[in-house]
Each structure stands twice: as C-alpha cells, then as structure tokens.
Simulated scan of single mutants.
Amino acid sequence: MRTIAIVGAGVIGLSWARLAREHGWDVVITDPRPDLENVVAEFADDEHVRATSDLAEAVADADLVQENGPERLDVKKSLFAEIVQAAKPDAVLATSSSSISATLIATELEDPARVVVGHPFNPPELMPLVEVLPGERTAPEAVDRAVELYEALGRVPVVIRKELPGFVANRLQMALSREARYLVEQGVVSAEQLDTILQNSLGLRWATTGLFEGNVLGGGPGGIRHLFAGVGAETGKIEFGVPSTDPEVVENLFEQVEDTYGVGPEAYERLRDKRDHRTRAVLKALRAP
C-alpha cells in the first residue's frame, strides 16, 4: 500500500486526500492550523487516514509528498527545507503550486533532486490533469517516479518541458479569460451568456477532442492545412481586446457575476455540487468503451 503525505489541509489538499483514499492509499494530513481535527472530520472513521501537526512525522513514510501550502515562495522554501530532511530517500516531493517553479523552491536546498511541481486542476479528485514540472536540478528519476505515482492515482500526468509562469493549462485559461472579460465589459454579451456560449461550443468540443485534433477535424479530409488556408486565414486577422483595469468597470463585472451565480457559502456549495455531478458524468461518458 502506498502512502501520501498531504501538506496543507485546504480545498486542494483535502481533495488530494479523497483521491488517494479512493485508490486505496494510506493518507497522512498535516497542517499547523489548530482546528485540523475538525477540518479532517470527514475521514474520522477511516483507519487509513490520520492527521498530525508535526510535518516531519507526516512525511517520514510517504511515497509521495504533496504540498498544498500558501502560494508564497518564502513559505514553500521553508516547508521543503524541512520536508527534504524528513522524507525517505526515494519519496517524490511535489508542490501543487500553480505559479511557483521547482527551481525557485529548491534554490537553497542541498538536495533538490526529488523536488517537482505536480500541479493539479481543481479539484484534483475529479480533474485528471497533473502538470509535472521538474526544476533545473530535479533528477530525471524523480520525474519518472512522479509520473508513475500520479498514474497510480488515476491521473493524467503531462511532463512540461520548460518552466514558464502559469505553466500551460493556466496560461491557456488566462488567455481565454482575458478575452471573455473584454467581451462582457464591452456589453457584447452578459456574463451568463458568455458561459452559455462556452459550455455549448468550445467546452463541449474540448471535452472530447483536443484543440489541434479539432483543427484536423475542422479542415475535413484536408486537415489542419485546409482549415488554416480557409477559415483560419480570416479568423487569424482578429485583434483581441484588453480587459479594463478601471476599478469601476471591474466592480461592475464582479457584480454581474455575483448577481448571476450568487456569493457566499450556500452559493459555493450549490455550484460545487453541480460542477462535481456534471464532471463525474462527463468523465464516465469519456471512459465508456
């Protein structure tokens, strides 16, 4: 039985814990927060899950350490300095960071060979992707081991070849988000209409085919070359907008989204449950023969 140490008992950390239990792993959750026992209460009757405020104790026997602390370089440097000392020699030491590279985290470590980014999409218990990014001093064996462990958790790990801010998935998300904000701010569509358009076109398409795969299909028998020579030649001339930084414009956007979807604990739980239900249904369909 494999063991995962979850460092940081927030939304991402607890989702990793649920995923690991679904796959039969032992789970140790650590966080300095005083209410840790209450936070992990959902696992109270599971003998394969335990919680401790002692970081060194939590990572001592782990095959995979998944750090989910605050998105601050100083905090991650401090955590990994202790993790490297306490973890067993063959453990993979991963951070869920969505923006901080393994190179920066391991700058001051004497032994950075096992440190990698293992960036999930939220929530990791549902979203298959894990972006695996080695640092400049990460050993190739650690990358291979990370891929093996994430696959054992039923995830789809992709090794990213270069360290870039935001990695890959979030860079794509931000590019689309910028244009979406611009269109709503300009009154082209409402926030709700934008989401309706996305869900019923690109979202549905990209759940079944990749972007470049869709280009091949869009070009018919002539493939991507035909698409780019035809429709692509015209759409390639589009100049994209820049969303406003004016506080009043941004506030209007926030208010429109909150008026559409709500805000607060009840709205969050309602939207989360809907997302999880639909995501599981899509994943079930995609996995069907």
Rank of each mutant, 00 (worst) to 15 (best):
L64K: 07
L194H: 11
G118S: 11
E248L: 09
M127F: 07
E125K: 15
Q173F: 00
E125C: 04
L227P: 04
V75L: 12
I160G: 02
A180I: 07
R181L: 15
R21S: 00
S98P: 12
E141N: 03
P221N: 11
L176T: 11
T209W: 10
Q85H: 08
L133E: 11
E179L: 05
P120C: 00
D90M: 00
D74F: 00
A44Y: 03
I100H: 12
A5Y: 07
G262Q: 10
V7C: 06
A5C: 02
P289T: 13
G232L: 07
K237V: 05
E269S: 11
T208H: 12
D61Q: 13
Y150V: 10
E255S: 14
G135K: 05
V242L: 14
R161V: 10
R171I: 03
G230Q: 12
L204F: 14
F240A: 08
V216F: 13
G214V: 00
V27D: 01
A288E: 13
D74T: 05
E251V: 00
V168S: 01
R287G: 15
N170D: 03
A51V: 07
V184C: 03
R33M: 09
L253R: 06
V115M: 03
L129T: 14
A169V: 13
V115Q: 04
S101T: 03
R145F: 01
E179N: 06
G118T: 03
S97T: 09
D45G: 09
L93M: 01
L283F: 09
F240G: 07
K76F: 00
H23I: 06
A175F: 04
K77D: 03
V65R: 02
G118R: 03
V75A: 13
G13E: 07
A152G: 07
A60M: 07
L55A: 04
I160R: 12
R161M: 10
V49D: 04
L253H: 11
E57L: 08
G210R: 15
L64D: 09
I6G: 02
G218H: 08
K77C: 03
D74N: 06
S96F: 05
T30N: 05
A9Q: 10
G187K: 05
I105M: 07
S201N: 14
A267Y: 12
G219A: 06
I197G: 10
L79F: 08
P289A: 15
R33W: 13
A56H: 06
L64G: 05
R205T: 02
G220D: 12
P89E: 00
A56K: 13
E42K: 08
T208P: 02
V116F: 02
L64S: 05
I160C: 01
Y182S: 09
A91E: 04
R72S: 10
V116Q: 04
M127V: 15
D273E: 13
I6T: 01
A56E: 12
A175C: 06
D63L: 10
V147M: 04
E71W: 00
R205G: 01
A288V: 08
A17G: 05
V156L: 12
K88L: 01
E151R: 15
V189R: 00
E67R: 06
V189T: 13
R161G: 12
H226F: 13
